[in-house]
Structure formats: C-alpha cells, structure tokens
Amino acid sequence: MRDFGVGFGHLVQGQKWVARHGRRFGFGLLPGLVTLVLYSGALVGLALGADDLVAWATPFADDWSSPWLGLFRNALTALLFVFGLFLSVITFTAVTLLVGEPFYESLSEDVDRDRGGEVPESGLPLWRELLISARDSLRLLLRVALYGVLLFACGFIPVVGQTVVPALGFCVSGYFLAVELTGVALQRRGVELKERLALLRGRRGAALGFGVPLILAFLVPFVAVFLMPGAVAGATLLVRDLRGEDPQENDHEGGNLSSAGGDQGVHHIPH
C-alpha cells in the first residue's frame, strides 16, 4: 500500500512540475491536441459511415423482414461504434506519445536536468526512436488485448464478473499505462521493453499507484490532453525512483543516516 502511495506521489509531482514550467506544459499539450483532432475526425467518420459499412458487411441480411433487419443492423452499428470508441481510449496514449516523441523526450530530459545528476540521451536518430516506440506500443497493445479477452470472459461469472473483474480491468489498464509512459525516459536510457516490464513488475504497487488514478482520470473527456505533459514528467520521476537515480534523495537520506550512524558507510535504498 505504501508503494501505491509512492507511485501516486510521482504522478502528482509530475503535474506540479509542468505547472511550474508553463512553457513546457504548453508545448506538451500540442501532441495531445493533434491526436484528439485526429481521433475526433475518425470517430465522426465512423459514426457517419457505420450504417453503410454494416450494410456492406452483411449482405446476407438484405432479404430479412422488418423489424429484424433494422434491429440486427442497428445493434451491429452500435457495437461497431462502441468498439471504435474503446479502441481510441486504449490507443490514445500510445499514439500521442508517438506523435509527440520529440516534445516528450525533451520534457523528460528537462525533468532529469532539473533533478540533477546524469541526463541520459539515447543517441539514436528520430526515425529510429519512432520505430522503437511504435514497435513497443504494438507489443503492449497485444498484451492489453489478451488481458481484455480474458477479463471479458470472466465478466460472465455471476457476482465476480460485476465486481472484481471491473476492478481488475482498471488495474491492468493502469499498469500498462504506466509501462507506456515510463517508456519515454527508459528508452533514453537504452532499456528494452522486456527490461521495462521486469523493472515495473518489481515495483508493481508503485506502477499501479501511478497508472490507475491516471486511467480513471482519462475516462473524463479531454482530461487526457491536459494531463499528458504532467504524466510524462511524473513517469520520469518514477523511473528515477525505480532505478535509484535521484541524487537529491540520496544526499538527503545519506545526510540523515550519517548523522545517526557516525562514520558508518551509507547506502541509499530506493523507495
């Protein structure tokens, strides 16, 4: 439970950081706004063309009598739009990070620089970074889809399906959202997806504390756009914590331990 609070604390500190650096917050909004416009256009197009798409995909129902034809195709149209909406929610963060790769990488570097110590740089060309981000996002999306199918099947279990399963769904979504967002800082450090997953599994409570409140906030329309810059900043702080890279915390804790333990050696233990 304490680690959950640590993760949530990094999320809050990230939002505070961008609030103190208004220029970075403004630049960080641009990718989210671009992605929002693209997704809004796609959803409007889907809403306008869903009827025709369903009719084209179900020619076998053309001879059905009323009201069965209307009920059948209206139900499929509604399901198609809901599926499109669900797909937009679970891919919004990945696409925003991909669109805003230079913005968010620069923002993450500024957080590292502000906290002190080494400021890692990937040294890779932009096209290579975009390729790696797209590949890792696709791998994560497949993992989320697999868990989604399993949770959907469990949703038919009486009582459990209506109580435990939705809570697990938010936890799974929040955890993978944390994996996605920490990818900005970890990719600059040359950490591959497999290592990222292992690192966050070792501090699952912190990952959930960071990701679950964020995924709940993202359910509110347009909130994701405004929280993305702070989420990237907070994810950078989380990465520094997970890897024990924060010299400010090291110096602070080291001073306290030295005063308590005299000349004994001091080793910083990451939270």
Rank of each mutant, 00 (worst) to 15 (best):
G28H: 01
V89F: 12
L150V: 12
S108Q: 07
L242P: 00
Y147H: 11
V225C: 00
G7C: 04
V111W: 08
E249F: 02
V44P: 00
N250S: 10
N74L: 14
L87G: 08
L69T: 09
P213K: 07
R2P: 03
L76Q: 10
G9T: 11
G32E: 01
T77I: 15
V6I: 14
Q15H: 08
G230L: 12
G32A: 04
R2A: 09
I269P: 03
G41M: 11
T163F: 06
A233I: 10
S66T: 14
W127P: 02
L151A: 08
K194T: 15
A47D: 09
A178G: 08
V95Q: 07
H267N: 11
L150D: 04
R115P: 05
F25I: 02
C171Q: 09
C154L: 15
D110W: 05
R23W: 08
Q15Y: 02
K16S: 06
H252L: 12
C171M: 15
D114R: 12
R201P: 06
V144F: 07
K16Q: 12
P31E: 01
F4Q: 12
H10S: 06
E180A: 11
F60K: 03
Q187K: 14
L97Y: 03
A217E: 08
F92Y: 13
S173L: 15
L53V: 15
H267S: 15
